[in-house]
Structure formats: structure tokens, C-alpha cells
């Protein structure tokens, strides 16, 4: 019934406006707030302060490094495993999915606690090495990386591709690098940007393992200053937006690749 349909549509617009208001009012407020660094006029002075702070660059570089390590370790660990499981041991899939539940059951704060307790003392005094932080980040981003890759793998017919390559005389090396990985490009990029978005501003592990990362730096700035935190919030929102947009653009039009971009905190 068109009357009903029209009513439904009108109601839909109401929900949309309400939802978007919740999304955008804080963003707009933050942006305007970030422009109030100079009294009486709107200016980008808060942003200048942010960029001028040497700690900004230092902590951001540190977090960038950590995110690169996390991406590398995560991909090297998870990509071959996911391919192997899809190809040889599909019955293990439920078990892996159980592990991808783990970061949910064991929140970062608990994970940090466990890592400190396990690796604070010799023989494995890793707590003073950034390796432990990276390991924690890999655990946190494991569900995203695994899900992206697994979705990518199921959307290509892995078995047929592999057999076709084998029948053409390809060895495992060329199968992996010339056949499978090129077909997983989108999934890999999704995993990379999602991991980046997760790690770059991460606070919990960084603060509890006591690393001078970007997340703790932002928290610190927030305690001491008024307008610079708003500028930082806008910058980091733009970074997240950039990462997610890239994923969305990349995965557009690829079947079965609804990107898993939702974040857990």
C-alpha cells in the first residue's frame, strides 16, 4: 500500500536524521572547538600547535612503526595459515573462529595484564621490548585480519585456482605469489588499513605496557590543554575516515567482500 510505503519512507528519513545528528553534532562541535585556539576569532592555531609539538611527531612515528610491524607480523602469520586452512584443513575453521572470538572475551585491558604477568620476568622478560606490544596488537587485530583474508579466500575459488595453476606446472611459490595473493589484493589492503586504523591511536596496551605511543600522547595532551585535543580528534577522525574509505573504495563491486570494518574497543 502506497500510503503505508510513504509513511514508512517518511519515518525512515526521521531515523536517518536522528542517527546522523548523533554522528555529526559531536564532530561539528569538535571541529568548531578546534578552531577557537585564538580568542575571539576562528583559526587553525590549535592545529599549528599540534604540529609544532615535537612529541606529536615522535609518538606518531612510534605508533606508525608499531602499526607497520603489526601489519607485517599479522599478515605473515595469518595469510599462509588462512590459505592453508581453506585448502587443506577446512575442518579447523571453527577452531580458528573460536580464537577470533578471544579478543572479545579477553578485552585489551585483561590481555595487557596477562602479558605483563607472563613476560615481566626472566627467562622471557619481553615487557621492555616493543615486540610484546606488537604481539598484543597482532592479537587485537587478529579477528579483522583473519576475517578479511577469509572473506577474500572464499570469494575466489581457491581450490580450482590452485589446481589450475598446478596443472600448468606452477610450484607452491608461484601459486602463492602469482595466483593467490594477487587475487587477494583487496582483502589484504582491507586488513592493512583496518589494522592501521586500530593500532595508530590505540591507548590501552600502549599505556599499560608504558610505551610513548600516539594514543597515550593524545590522552596526555587532553589532560593539559583545551583546544589542541579537539584538533587531534579531528585529525584522527580524518585518518580513520581515510583508511576506511580506501577499504570501501577497494572492495566496491567485489562479490562477498562486504568489508568487516566494525571496530571493537
Amino acid at each position: 500500500m502506497s500510503n503505508g510505503k510513504t509513511g514508512r519512507k517518511a519515518l525512515s528519513w526521521v531515523w536517518l536524521v536522528l542517527g546522523l545528528a548523533y554522528f555529526f553534532i559531536p564532530l561539528i562541535s569538535t571541529f568548531l572547538f578546534s578552531l577557537k585556539g585564538k580568542k575571539g576569532v576562528l583559526s587553525f592555531v590549535a592545529y599549528q600547535h599540534v604540529f609544532a609539538d615535537p612529541n606529536f611527531l615522535k609518538t606518531f612515528t612510534f605508533s606508525l612503526q608499531m602499526s607497520i610491524y603489526t601489519i607485517l607480523v599479522g599478515l605473515i602469520l595469518i595469510v599462509p595459515t588462512a590459505i592453508w586452512i581453506n585448502l587443506k584443513l577446512p575442518k579447523v575453521k571453527p577452531l580458528i573462529e573460536l580464537f577470533s572470538l578471544m579478543p572479545f572475551v579477553i578485552p585489551p585491558v585483561v590481555l595487557a595484564f596477562g602479558l605483563i604477568k607472563s613476560y615481566a620476568r626472566p627467562p622471557l622478560a619481553l615487557v621492555s621490548s616493543p615486540a610484546l606490544l606488537v604481539a598484543g596488537y597482532v592479537v587485537i587485530s587478529f579477528p579483522y585480519i583473519y576475517r578479511s583474508i577469509d572473506t577474500g579466500l572464499t570469494s575466489i575459488d581457491l581450490k580450482v585456482l590452485t589446481e589450475a595453476a598446478q596443472s600448468l606446472g606452477a610450484g607452491w611459490g608461484s601459486i602463492l605469489f602469482r595466483v593467490i595473493l594477487p587475487n587477494l589484493r583487496t582483502a589484504l589492503l582491507s586488513a592493512i588499513f583496518l589494522t592501521f586504523a586500530t593500532v595508530i591511536g590505540e591507548l590501552t596496551l600502549a599505556v599499560l605496557l608504558a610505551w610513548p605511543a600516539f594514543g597515550p600522547y593524545m590522552a596526555h595532551v587532553g589532560r593539559d590543554l583545551a583546544y589542541e585535543p579537539a584538533a587531534l580528534a579531528i585529525l584522527s577522525f580524518m585518518m580513520t575516515w581515510g583508511s576506511i574509505s580506501i577499504i570501501q573504495i577497494l572492495s566496491r563491486g567485489i562479490p562477498g567482500s562486504r568489508s568487516n570494518v566494525g571496530g571493537l574497543h
Binding site: S29, P229, A230, T240, S245, G263
Partner: peptide, 17 residues
């Protein structure tokens, strides 16, 4: 996708603002 990843410190700042 963006907003669900926009949490932690920047989100707190946004709400303070």
C-alpha cells in the same frame, strides 16, 4: 565503518568539545 572505529581518546575529546 569510520565511526565504529572512532573511539578511545579522540572520541572522548569530541564529547568534551
Amino acid at each position: 565503518g569510520v565511526a565504529s572505529n572512532f573511539a578511545g581518546v579522540p572520541l572522548a575529546f569530541a564529547f568534551i568539545s
